[in-house]
């Protein structure tokens, strides 16, 4: 059973989700202004999945994800100022301005990074889990990925190895319905992605339960419960795959004309958005909580304002930064 979150915890999840939303909205503006370059994949829509999943982990556990990583980084507690500084390519960024939007990491917080190659981080997750198991540590890895990555070889090789070696990994598929512009049903033989785990289901010791639940990824409580349970299984026996049904309310990246879906479809999901829904739940559960929620909303806006200030006032990387960390000296 998952630890039951108290009011303070639930308000903190709300805070994280709102912070992510405001952060992403601001990033979109900064991108339009030319202050953020490269690709920019916004985490607007799937906030409940990232926040719920990370909330289910302990400090010693591990998180790794793909390139839509801002929300995961903020949920894991990376400093919002330094995340924004990375967006702006500043020396104070979490990756020193050398990684950018797709490559946010913090070793100390066991956030092993966002990765730009679809599926490329999945074997890394298996390796991190192997290291934990090898060293006899009671730790679990949550590897987030998009639906698109479940069609690439890395996915199948990594799931298979994790089952053969009983590795403590939760494979969390954020199914946002589209791999770039290609709908899941047009790209995946298995339309219910969670079924793909079936093929690798029996770990060598017979404890395999690779196929976990399909959860409502717009419901932070449901995601928290599912990942808590999956992580528990992963620690004890081996890998689990959870599919989180979510939706990205913005384009794949900036400048996506979104010809692959209708406005009506996007609008229908906007009304089911995870933040409004969670706010309604909290208002219902705790009488008079609105003022606290309003205050959280204001604080999130201010935190993002401050982060932009911090980033803008930060120095650019130098020539020494350019040439450092290619090798261990």
């Amino acid at each position: 059973m998952a630890r039951q979150p108290n009011k303070e915890t639930l308000l903190d999840w709300y805070r994280q989700m709102v912070l992510i939303r405001r952060f992403e909205e601001r990033c979109a503006e900064l991108y339009q202004q030319g202050l953020i370059g490269g690709f920019l994949h916004l985490y607007i829509g799937p906030e409940a999945t990232g926040v719920g999943a990370v909330a289910a982990l302990r400090e010693q556990d591990h998180v790794i994800t793909a390139y839509r990583d801002h929300g995961i980084a903020l949920a894991r507690g990376l400093d919002v100022n330094r995340v924004m500084a990375e967006m702006l390519g500043k020396r104070t960024g979490v990756s020193g301005g050398k990684g950018g939007s797709m490559h946010l990491a913090d070793r100390d917080l066991h956030m092993w990074g966002g990765y730009g190659i679809v599926g490329g981080h999945l074997p890394l997750a298996a390796g991190i889990a192997l290291a934990a198991k090898y060293q006899g540590k009671d730790e679990v890895v949550v590897a987030l990925m998009g639906d698109g990555s479940t069609n690439i070889g890395y996915f199948h090789e990594s799931l298979n190895l994790s089952a053969v070696w009983d590795l403590p990994v939760v494979w969390l598929v954020e199914n946002n319905q589209y791999g770039m512009g290609t709908a899941v049903g047009r790209a995946s033989g298995a339309v219910e992605i969670v079924n793909k785990a079936n093929a690798y289901c029996c770990g060598a010791d017979g404890h395999g339960m690779l196929q976990g639940p399909r959860v409502d990824g717009m419901d932070v409580m449901a995601v928290y419960d599912a990942i808590s349970e999956a992580a528990e299984h992963a620690r004890k026996y081996g890998p689990v795959l959870v599919e989180s049904l979510t939706y990205r309310l913005e384009g794949h990246s900036m400048g996506d004309p979104q010809r692959y879906r209708t406005k009506e479809e996007v609008e229908s999901f906007q009304t089911k958005g995870p933040i409004g829904r969670f706010r309604a739940l909290l208002s219902d559960k705790y009488k008079g909580v609105e003022s606290a929620l309003d205050r959280i909303d204001e604080e999130a806006l201010k935190a993002v304002d401050d982060a932009v200030e911090f980033a803008k006032n930060s120095p650019d990387p130098t020539y020494d930064d350019l040439v450092s960390h290619v090798y261990v000296d």
Binding site: P123, L124, A125, A126, I128, L130, N160, L161, V164, W165
Partner: peptide, 28 residues
């Protein structure tokens, strides 16, 4: 078997998992 690990025929994950294990403190 802990230190001499047979793998499936899966070069992508052999190399990739070794990278992850190295990042996490082992010397694969």
């Amino acid at each position: 078997e802990k230190r001499v690990r047979d793998t499936p025929i899966s070069e992508m994950v052999i190399a990739g998992a070794a990278v992850g294990a190295a990042m996490a403190g082992l010397r694969p």
